[in-house]
Amino acid sequence: MTYERETGTIGEAGNGAGASGDPLRVAVIIGSTREGRIGDAVARWFVERARVRGELDLAVLDLAEFDFPVHYPERATEQMTEFAEAIGKAEAFVVVTPEYNRSFPASLKQAIDFAYEEWQTKPVGFVSYGHGSSGLYAVEQLRSVFTELHTVTLRNGVALDFLHTPLEDHAGACARDRAVRLMLDQLGWWGWALREARAVRPYVS
Results as ranks from 00 to 15, higher is better:
53 R>C: 10
53 R>F: 09
54 G>F: 00
54 G>R: 05
55 E>T: 02
55 E>A: 06
55 E>V: 07
56 L>I: 05
56 L>F: 15
57 D>L: 09
57 D>V: 01
58 L>A: 06
58 L>H: 00
58 L>K: 00
59 A>W: 04
59 A>M: 01
59 A>T: 02
59 A>C: 11
60 V>R: 04
61 L>S: 07
62 D>G: 11
62 D>F: 13
63 L>A: 08
63 L>R: 07
64 A>E: 05
65 E>I: 10
65 E>C: 14
66 F>C: 00
66 F>W: 12
66 F>Q: 00
67 D>Q: 11
67 D>E: 11
68 F>C: 01
68 F>M: 09
69 P>C: 01
69 P>E: 01
69 P>D: 00
70 V>Y: 04
72 Y>N: 13
72 Y>D: 13
73 P>K: 04
73 P>T: 10
73 P>S: 12
74 E>G: 12
74 E>Y: 04
76 A>L: 15
77 T>H: 05
77 T>M: 06
77 T>V: 04
78 E>R: 10
79 Q>S: 13
79 Q>E: 15
81 T>G: 02
82 E>Q: 13
82 E>H: 14
82 E>F: 11
83 F>Y: 08
84 A>E: 06
85 E>M: 06
86 A>Y: 03
88 G>Y: 14
88 G>K: 01
88 G>E: 11
89 K>P: 06
89 K>R: 15
91 E>Q: 14
92 A>I: 14
92 A>C: 02
92 A>M: 09
93 F>S: 03
93 F>P: 09
94 V>C: 07
94 V>S: 03
97 T>A: 09
98 P>S: 03
98 P>L: 12
98 P>Y: 15
100 Y>N: 07
100 Y>L: 03
104 F>H: 05
104 F>A: 00
104 F>G: 07
105 P>V: 08
105 P>R: 07
106 A>I: 06
106 A>P: 05
107 S>A: 14
107 S>H: 05
107 S>V: 00
108 L>M: 07
108 L>F: 05
109 K>S: 10
109 K>N: 13
110 Q>C: 00
110 Q>I: 00
110 Q>W: 00
112 I>D: 05
113 D>P: 01
114 F>Q: 13
114 F>R: 08
114 F>P: 02
116 Y>E: 12
116 Y>Q: 06
118 E>L: 04
119 W>T: 13
119 W>D: 11
119 W>V: 03
121 T>F: 12
122 K>V: 08
122 K>F: 08
124 V>E: 11
124 V>T: 12
125 G>R: 02
125 G>W: 06
127 V>S: 02
128 S>C: 10
128 S>R: 00
128 S>I: 07
129 Y>R: 08
129 Y>P: 01
129 Y>M: 03
129 Y>V: 05
129 Y>C: 03
130 G>M: 05
130 G>E: 03
131 H>T: 14
131 H>L: 11
134 S>A: 15
134 S>P: 01
135 G>M: 06
136 L>K: 02
136 L>S: 06
